[in-house]
Nucleic acid binder design. Structure first.
Lengths: 207, 207
DNA sequence: CGCAACTGAGAACGAGCGTTCTCAAAATTG
DNA sequence: CAATTTTGAGAACGCTCGTTCTCAGTTGCG
């Protein structure tokens, strides 16, 4: 039982898997999915086709793995943003749009992977469409958690999610991160209006 | 100069061109662009490949023609919506979201063609990316026109545009038209807040 | 040491892509 | 009517796709 050797090969396999996912994510994101063949993936990752198909039984499986990883990354970003919002759930919600602004500034930003993939594959790959739908639903649910803590009605969460989605596509197409700031300003108005409406005995501020 | 015959053939050519565009639009929209080959276009439109290439010198030219037509259709819908808004520019802005709600209800609704196409081709076809960028910019400019008439600051137009974009992708992925109503409610809040903030002493100038 | 199993890199496969070509039928012209 | 041009439908081309196969080299094990 060469356990050391086995551990080493297993570790290597995991590293190679990560390298493949890195490469696939980068190429799919920058060029679109159909435009990136398995050959290009082999060339850019340095992993042979046979190995690729050992790790992922099909291109669709690889796409799903890439999306799953992006989902984890996205969830981490959202949680980090929420953690940044210091005290109030209001700040936590607004921190999400600050996170978006930073993301939009990245050089290779080209919109939301899930939206892009839905546009390209949503009509022909139901399994992937479902995965994307679930991802977006879970983001809305997470927003709803925080919204609930503010005491505002749940409909605010849907509005805030729409702002986030719109900011992503607008920023991607326009090539600027202005949309993040516009979305943040809109979110501020929506949140404060909802909070004011929900506290009838409180004096409406904004003098 | 058989002018009658020439007119007839010209007319027929235009009808055939429209048929090709109809088919291309439908197939591209429902399946994505890369997934639809010229053969599929020939089969579904009944127009031979030679004729297709007479009408459009390349697939990219056909894609651009489809996008141009969608842009005209979109502009007509927006203008019709604005015309529906009875008196005030506020109503005109909100009517855009009613238009969206109707659109989302269509059976084959699968999001915004421009957003979908940008995700699929934006990274590799700069000419198409530019066309999409210009389309979105012109929509924002149109909203800004109406926003200006309300007397609200121009930043409101960006916020409303982001809501519209977010509603389109959200509705497409979720498969419901709820997003249109959430976006409309959010738009109402944003507009009325902007108007209230902008009218401490103002006389409304609408005649 | 010798044999069986496994690995790697890349060739190869069938299918589908965008595009062009063939060639018989139709239309046009003197 | 005969010669010429224009058209149509689809076969064909070269390429790339996702996937599988080949086969020389390496490893594991009695």
């Amino acid at each position: 039982m060469a356990s050391t050797a086995r551990n080493r090969t297993t570790l290597q396999a995991e590293q190679i898997r990560e390298r493949v996912l890195d490469t696939a994510d980068r190429l799919y994101y920058s060029r679109g999915i159909h435009a990136v063949g398995m050959d290009a993936l082999r060339d850019e990752s340095g992993v042979s086709l046979k190995r690729l198909y050992q790790l992922f039984p099909s291109k669709e499986a690889l796409i799903e793995a890439v999306l799953h990883r992006r989902r984890r990354v996205w969830n981490r970003l959202v949680e980090a943003a929420i953690a940044t919002g210091r005290d109030t759930p209001r700040d936590q919600l607004l921190a999400v749009y600050d996170m978006l602004a930073h993301w939009f500034d990245e050089d290779d930003f080209r919109g939301c992977v899930f939206i892009n993939t839905f546009g390209e594959l949503g009509g022909t790959a139901p399994h992937i469409a479902t995965l994307i739908r679930e991802h977006k639903a879970s983001f809305q649910a997470r927003l709803a958690d925080v919204v609930t803590k503010t005491g505002a009605p749940a409909t605010l969460a849907h509005q805030l999610a729409i702002l986030a989605e719109g900011a992503q596509t607008t920023a991607a197409i326009a090539g600027t991160n202005d949309a993040a700031h516009h979305a943040r300003a809109a979110a501020t108005t929506l949140i404060d209006t909802a909070l004011a409406a929900n506290r009838p005995q409180a004096t409406t501020t904004t003098g």
